[in-house]
């Protein structure tokens, strides 16, 4: 296996292992996402039919906000004991570090979403059983998009004042097109309409930004 992928995999496994051992990040994210779903519910009349049309939005707002909470911790782990310096001392490709971190964040957020969906089903009385297989691809693409930009900016916000406050300010504006695609395709799947256009948009988004981040990550790590 080429060294690039060995390094990517090493980072990914390391992150998942630490996450699994502490479960700090994921439990905070899941609780926050749960709160968002509950609070959004109060905006509407109980049992109002409008809930069904806004459910995809609630799902993605919960994912994005709770995801950002987790993303802000992503590089904070590397800051402890100055591990980031240890990583930079190795001949590792900055792109491999980025990719490993990004995939770790994607997986964490996918687990988070697997927890949010049942909450939506229960509290908003959403029926998604038949639509579920068609939901997987748009959700995956949207999550990859969020993880890509979020990982880049998470590394950037590490050295700023107001670290946690800063990440959403950078990530959300850039994420808007992919977020729009994610919400709209979720809704379209529920309504049974066509989502090809949105999938094209989000795959292009993911592909371009992964490529850009692989190239640019070097400049973010540099000192």
């Amino acid at each position: 296996m080429p060294l690039f992928f060995t390094q990517t995999l090493a980072i990914l496994q390391k992150d998942l292992k630490t996450e699994w051992r502490t479960r700090e990040r994921l439990s905070a994210m899941a609780f926050f996402a749960f709160l968002i779903v509950i609070i959004f519910n109060f905006i509407y009349e109980p049992g109002s039919p409008i809930i069904k049309t806004v459910a995809p939005g609630i799902f993605w707002i919960a994912t994005a906000f709770a995801g950002l909470l987790g993303l802000s911790r992503s590089f904070a782990i590397e800051k402890q004991n100055d591990c980031l310096m240890g990583l930079r001392l190795t001949p590792a490709d900055p792109g491999a570090i980025f990719l490993g971190k990004m995939l770790g964040n994607t997986l964490t957020m996918l687990i988070l979403q697997a927890l949010i969906l049942p909450i939506l089903v229960i509290f908003l009385n959403l029926q998604i059983a038949q639509a579920l297989p068609h939901l997987i691809l748009p959700i995956l693409l949207g999550t990859l998009g969020l993880a890509t930009i979020g990982t880049l900016f998470s590394a950037m916000s590490l050295n700023t004042r107001l670290r946690e406050a800063f990440l959403p300010l950078l990530t959300l504006p850039i994420f808007i097109p992919a977020l729009l695609a994610a919400i709209e395709s979720f809704r379209a799947v529920l309504e049974g309409s066509e989502i090809t256009d949105w999938l094209v948009l989000s795959s292009a988004f993911v592909a371009l930004y992964i490529a850009a981040c692989l190239l640019l990550f070097e400049y973010v790590l540099e000192d």
Binding site: I176, P177, L180, A181, E184, D197, W198, L208
Partner: peptide, 9 residues
Amino acid sequence: FIHYATKLW
């Protein structure tokens, strides 16, 4: 992306 997304939207 914003251009395409807002148009589709």
